[in-house]
């Protein structure tokens, strides 16, 4: 191996470790007792305990937040997909002024700082009397899920060869059948990844949830963060357990569609 390659490898491994070690540390600490946690030299070997997880899972606030998060995020993602995927198909296939503007609008939503959405949304929901409701958060999150789904699905549909859709037209498929039976199945891996990614984004979303909820509709990230607001006496074990719990759904999704997500973000077409 040439020295240059060797150095690059080393840098890569180092960068990987920088990312992975804190995560592993969190995982380990979620299963330590306070006595094991608060020692001068960190312990790698210890007797794991389920206490922290137990504590987190048995809290009423966590249970409710988990329920909120699941309902709010999956509703926003499902509605976002139902609206966003067909929109992406139209943007990919019909190129005109209107679709170009729509695509740019979806993209521009991604560039907008969340605070710019949060404050007006807060005012709107308060005046509608729907502040701190699941509906309010679902509708607000739709701006995220729809735009992400569109943004990442357009290239997926653009990669479906036009000739294949033309063959479908010759085979007597109308526009809807062409979409459901041909374009969507061909693009499915990347479209699924786009939807999964939109789920991860809203699942982790913090700022909007913080500003649009106070008690009833609080999501998991909010409740998890509240656990650290207990003054100087930080319950590290519990905090880590909450973080682990919070990270599980995105990690599972990533494992399921990670490969597709990689192609969704790269420009290479899987069919060439």
């Amino acid at each position: 191996m040439r020295p240059g390659t060797l150095i690059l490898r080393a840098v890569l491994i180092l960068a990987g470790l920088v990312v992975v070690i804190p995560l592993l540390w969190t995982l380990l600490n979620a299963f330590k007792t306070n006595a094991d946690l608060l020692v001068g030299t960190p312990k790698l070997f210890f007797t794991p305990v389920w206490d922290n997880m137990d504590y987190v899972l048995s809290r009423r606030s966590v249970a409710r937040a988990l329920q909120n998060s699941l309902i709010i995020c999956s509703s926003a993602v499902v509605i976002g997909a139902v609206l966003g995927v067909p929109a992406a198909y139209v943007i990919a296939r019909i190129k005109n002024r209107a679709t170009r503007e729509a695509q740019f609008f979806a993209l521009s939503l991604r560039f907008m700082p969340p605070v710019a959405v949060a404050i007006p949304m807060m005012v709107i929901w308060i005046s509608l009397g729907m502040y701190d409701s699941r509906i309010a958060l679902i509708v607000t999150y739709l701006t995220i899920t729809i735009s992400i789904t569109i943004w990442l699905s357009v290239p997926a549909f653009e990669r479906v060869p036009i000739a294949v859709e033309e063959a479908a037209r010759v085979d007597r498929l109308g526009p809807y059948a062409t979409f459901f039976r041909v374009a969507l199945p061909i693009a499915r891996m990347q479209v699924l990844s786009a939807i999964a990614f939109s789920f991860i984004l809203v699942w982790n979303e913090f700022l909007l949830a913080l500003m649009l909820t106070t008690s009833k509709a609080k999501t998991l990230p909010i409740v998890a963060s509240e656990m650290s607001q207990l003054g100087m006496n930080v319950p590290w074990g519990i905090l880590n357990a909450a973080v682990v719990l919070l990270s599980l759904p995105p990690l599972i999704l990533l494992a399921l569609v990670g490969r597709g997500m990689n192609t969704a973000f790269s420009k290479k077409s899987p069919q060439d």
């Binding site: 060869p161 000739a163 294949v164 033309e166 063959a167 037209r169 010759v170 085979d171 007597r172 498929l173 109308g174």
Partner: peptide, 15 residues
């Protein structure tokens, strides 16, 4: 529509 013309087509890139 193409499907109603009684035609069948073979494309360059197979499609």
């Amino acid at each position: 529509d193409p499907g109603d013309r009684g035609i069948a087509m073979v494309f360059q890139n197979y499609a």
